[in-house]
Structure formats: structure tokens, C-alpha cells
Amino acid sequence: MTAGITTTSAGAGRGPSPLRRRRRRLLIGFAVAAVALLVVCVLSLMVGSRAIDPAAVLNALLHYDKSDELSLIVVDSRLSRTLLGLFAGLALGLAGTVMQGLSRNPLADPGILGVNFGASLAVVVAISVFGITTTSGYVWFAFAGAGLAAVVVYAVASVGREGATPIKLALAGAAVSAALGSLITAVLLTSQVSLDALRFWQVGSLAGRGFDVLWQVLPTIALGTVVALALGRSLNGLALGDDVARGLGQRVGLSRAACAVAIVLLCGSATAAVGPIAFVGLVVPHVARYVVGGDYRWVLAFSAVFAPTLLIACDVIGRVVAYPGELQVGVVTALVGAPVFIALVRRRKLVSL
């Protein structure tokens, strides 16, 4: 009896289990990442062609006045830009993570399902055929084009007994993207107006987008976010291979379809709103896996915070390096993301899915 009591007491005196310690570290890391996101959001409201101190920013947010110049700058210009960067970054980060998990391809990005080219072709059609040249006007064309291109790619890849395997998805995406790219070039060669408008959209930018654009894409981003965050267990199963996933009782076809829906909703919305921004959806999942490991439940959660932090930070950097002008965020993400991705690729364990 005494020995049993002694053993129990010794066990009770031990520290928390490794699983609990890991979960605690992950929660602390997530809290730190959330604080970093809050900091870059505040900087986004403060930094620009006119610097505004935190007290004035807070006053403009709490006491909005249309006759006050600072209120117009903070609320009407920078707040909408910051919120759009927040939700677009969230969408790109989750979409990139789901893409890489679905295709088991560490180099997967929005182009793998033809999303960028589908959205670009739809924007070209909206401009050249319907004469729509405003962002709020062609945002739904871009979303529809992105969704339609992704559906075509998935349908082509699904032909055959194996269904939409990762290799077939990549090949179908490359083929559809090449075809859409040819159509875009053909239209642009005959329309100077389309060429000028598409050039501004394709560079990727948070500037010039107001609350009207944000409200249009917010419902689809919210729905896509819910679907993506619910796919953690499914992506963990797909990472083990189709046969293992089926052996564990997972419905592989249904999981892939749900992943495709999430990608279309998230990537289509973000691309339609801010243009095809590179490297965010490509780099962020690798960084998240480096921090939390291979569990997609945590990778998705951290990607949802890392991605908007990166996008908004790049937008702030673009306002500073070319002061009093600015570089568009799509240019800055490419300059920042390329070296980071090269460093990640050199570590083999970070790109193995």
C-alpha cells in the first residue's frame, strides 16, 4: 500500500506531459503572432505620405468626423486598406496551405489550379467587352473567372479511375493556365484600354481599394475560412497518401472536393480584390510548418495569422522605401518573399510534405 502511494505521489509530482508542454508552447507562439499582427495593423494606420501618431489614430477611429482631415486619412483611406490586407492575407495564407496539402506539392501556389489566369481573363473580358474599368466593377468577374478555371482544372484532373491525383491536378493546372494565358494575350493585343487597366490590376495592390471592394468579397472569404479551418484532419490524412487515408476511413474524394471549394472561395476572393499577389500563399505555409510541425490543424491556424502579417508589413514597407510615393504591395512581397523562399527550399525538411 505504501509503495503504491509513493509511486502515485511521484507521478503526480512530475511536470506536465510533453503533449501539454507542446500545446502550451504553440498557444504562446500563436499569441505572439497575433500581437505581431496587431502591431503591423497599427503601423498601417500610422505610416504613409503623412505620418500620424497613435493618439491621433485612436481619436480618428473613435470620433470620426468627415470634416476632419486626419479622420478622412485614417478611416476612409488607411482603415479600408488595412482591413483588406488583413482579409486578403488571411485568404491567401489559408488557400496556399490547402493547395500544398491537397496537391502534396511544396511549390503549389494560386497558379496551380489556374486561379490567377482565370481571374485575369475574366478581368480582360469585363474591360474589353463590357467597358468596366473600376475595381469594384470587375471584382465579381475576377472571382467568377477564378472559380470557373479551378472547376475546369479539377474536372479535367478527375477523368480516369484514380480521380484528381496530385500529379494530374498539377498537369491539368499547367495546361489550363497556358490556354488561358494565350487567350489573355490575344485580347490584350487588340485592346490598349484592356492592357492599361489589366497592368494596374496584375501588379497586386491594396491601394485604391475601398470598403466597397471589401464588402463584396468578405462573405466568400468568411465562408472559405470556415471550410479551410475545418480541413485540418482531412489534410493530415491526405498527407499520408490516398491508400492510407482510405484505410483510416477518410472519404478522399469528398476531402478533395472540400479543399477545392475552400481554394476557390479564398484564392478567388483575394485575387479578385487585390490582384495576383505572389509568394504569400507559397512561403507562409512553409514558415508555419517550420514553427509548428506537420499537423495541418496548427499549420492552418498559424498561416491564418502569419499571412496577413506578412502582407500588411510589406504594404507598410512599400510606403516607406519610396517616400513620398510608394511601391505596390505585389512588388514588395516578391522582393521579400523570394529570398525567404530560397532559404526555405535549401532546408529539405521544410519542403517535404
Rank of each mutant, 00 (worst) to 15 (best):
A239T: 07
T225V: 12
L84R: 04
F30N: 04
W215F: 13
Q250E: 10
R22I: 11
V292E: 06
T6W: 00
L229C: 09
T185N: 14
R78K: 04
V227Q: 06
F87L: 11
L248I: 11
G29N: 11
Y154P: 11
G101H: 01
M99H: 01
V151H: 04
T133F: 03
I342E: 00
V213Q: 02
G208S: 04
L169D: 03
I312R: 07
R256W: 02
V203N: 08
G160Y: 04
R297P: 09
G253K: 05
R246L: 13
G145V: 14
A270W: 03
L148V: 15
G89N: 07
L198H: 07
G181W: 01
R346A: 11
P16Q: 12
V316M: 06
A273S: 10
S71K: 08
V156W: 01
V123R: 02
T220K: 00
A34F: 12
A12D: 09
S234V: 08
D243K: 10
A278E: 03
A91G: 07
I277R: 04
L214P: 03
D196E: 12
V39D: 10
G13D: 11
R104C: 13
L86S: 05
L238A: 13
G4W: 00
E162K: 14
A207D: 06
L113A: 11
K66W: 00
A197P: 00
V176I: 15
L229T: 13
F117Q: 14
M99D: 00
V305D: 08
A150I: 09
Q250S: 09
S128N: 11
G247L: 10
A51C: 00
A126L: 06
A334Y: 01
E69K: 11
Y290N: 14
I221F: 00
S67V: 13
P285I: 13
R233E: 03
L86F: 11
A338T: 14
T134H: 10
S9L: 14
S17T: 15
L26I: 12
L282T: 06
S136V: 15
V321M: 07
V244K: 06
A239L: 06
L45T: 12
V124Y: 02
T8L: 14
V139M: 03
L43C: 15
R233I: 04
L254W: 08
V40P: 05
A197Q: 10
R21F: 08
V213C: 05
L43E: 04
S71Q: 03
S103E: 00
G204D: 07
D295C: 11
T6R: 09
F279P: 00
S205G: 06
L231K: 07
S9H: 10
I132G: 09
L62V: 12
V351E: 09
S71H: 01
L26Q: 14
Y296H: 15
A272F: 04
L229A: 12
V299T: 14
A108H: 02
S136E: 13
W215I: 15
V226T: 09
A197T: 14
G237T: 06
V292W: 02
G330M: 08
A343F: 12
G96F: 03
R246D: 02
L180E: 07
S158D: 04
G241H: 05
R78A: 12
A56K: 08
L94H: 06
A272H: 04
V151K: 08
P166T: 13
G85Y: 03
A313H: 05
